[in-house]
């Protein structure tokens, strides 16, 4: 390593310090899920498992969780297809408007959620006359998830170049066979990284969702939003959040197993 000992120690210290700050509110969430006080008074006077019990019996939370999983899976599936297509299309080719295409793909995530939200809501309800539903949430989520897949695919293709596929074609394989046997395996971990990010983005999205969901469709963030502001439900929400943090280990672990390298799998590092 070419960084001096002092610098490395300083970096470590900053990292630890920031992580402590990052985890303090999360620890507080877990602590408050046991706090008897319905409005999370500090310091807690006493502890109870009552909220955990209530959360387990909350069918609203459970169905909202499944709605969120459903939406995130569907949006991710769409994003995978469209993002991969766009990534493949833009490889190596230098055509007029290439930058415009990347910009258009980037735009839904670069513009604030509230803009995307009201634009889509307006398009659905007044322009197209479609009633808001689970389907409209999925469309909205897929729109801003495409970029995560696209970026990962494009970066991977750029790094690996086209030699392998060229060789495959030279050996007589058709474009589809080449894609199945060469390109896809090459892209697999990049796709996984993109899919995971896309799933996460969709899962915790609230702003765009607020505008594109009909009040009957409740994703988990919407459920949390509605229940956080009811005095008897606040602590139950803390339980749900605590559970989410604990369960987030699962997708992260899966990504690590499937992609070989966690860092690459999760960040699309290349």
């Amino acid at each position: 390593m070419s960084l001096s000992r002092g610098l490395r120690a300083a970096l470590l210290a900053i990292t630890v310090l920031v992580l402590v700050v990052v985890y303090t509110p999360l620890a507080l969430v877990v602590l408050n899920s046991f706090n008897v006080d319905r409005t999370f008074a500090w310091p807690p006077k006493d502890f109870t498992t009552h909220w955990w019990d209530a959360a387990i019996h909350s069918t609203g939370a459970r169905s909202a969780l499944w709605t969120s999983v459903e939406v995130a899976l569907a949006a991710t599936a769409v994003a995978l297809v469209l993002g991969t297509l766009a990534g493949l299309a833009l490889r190596k080719t230098r055509f007029f408007g290439r930058n415009v295409v990347s910009l258009v793909i980037l735009l839904p995530i670069a513009l604030p959620g509230i803009v995307t939200g009201i634009a889509l809501s307006n398009a659905f309800t007044t322009v197209l006359g479609v009633e808001l539903s689970l389907f409209t949430i999925i469309i909205a989520h897929a729109t801003f998830c495409i970029v995560t897949v696209f970026n990962n695919v494009q970066a991977r293709l750029q790094r690996l170049g086209g030699n392998m596929e060229q060789a495959s074609m030279d050996l007589g394989a058709g474009p589809l066979t080449t894609f199945r046997l060469v390109t896809f395996p090459m892209l697999r971990s990049a796709l996984l990284a993109g899919a995971l990010l896309s799933f996460g983005l969709s899962f915790d999205e609230i702003v765009v969702t607020t505008f594109t969901a009909s009040p009957r469709d409740q994703t988990l963030p919407l459920w949390i939003f509605q229940n956080l502001f009811r005095p008897n439900q606040g602590p139950v929400v803390n339980v749900v959040a605590a559970v989410l943090v604990l369960f987030s280990v699962i997708p992260i672990y899966l990504a690590q197993r499937l992609s070989g390298s966690t860092a690459e799998g999760l960040t699309g590092a290349r």
Binding site: T15, L19, V22, Y23, P25, L26, L28, V29, N32, F40, G200, F203, D204, I206, L220, P221, I224, F225, L228, G234, V237, N238, V240, A241, A242, L244, V245, F247, S248, V249, I252, T262, A263, L266, T267
Partner: peptide
């Protein structure tokens, strides 16, 4: 560390804001 950085993303945005 990558896991440590990513984990908080899964706790709901709203819940974190309320914790603050």
């Amino acid at each position: 560390l990558v896991i440590a950085v990513l984990m908080p993303l899964w706790a709901s945005y709203l819940v974190k804001a309320y914790a603050w």
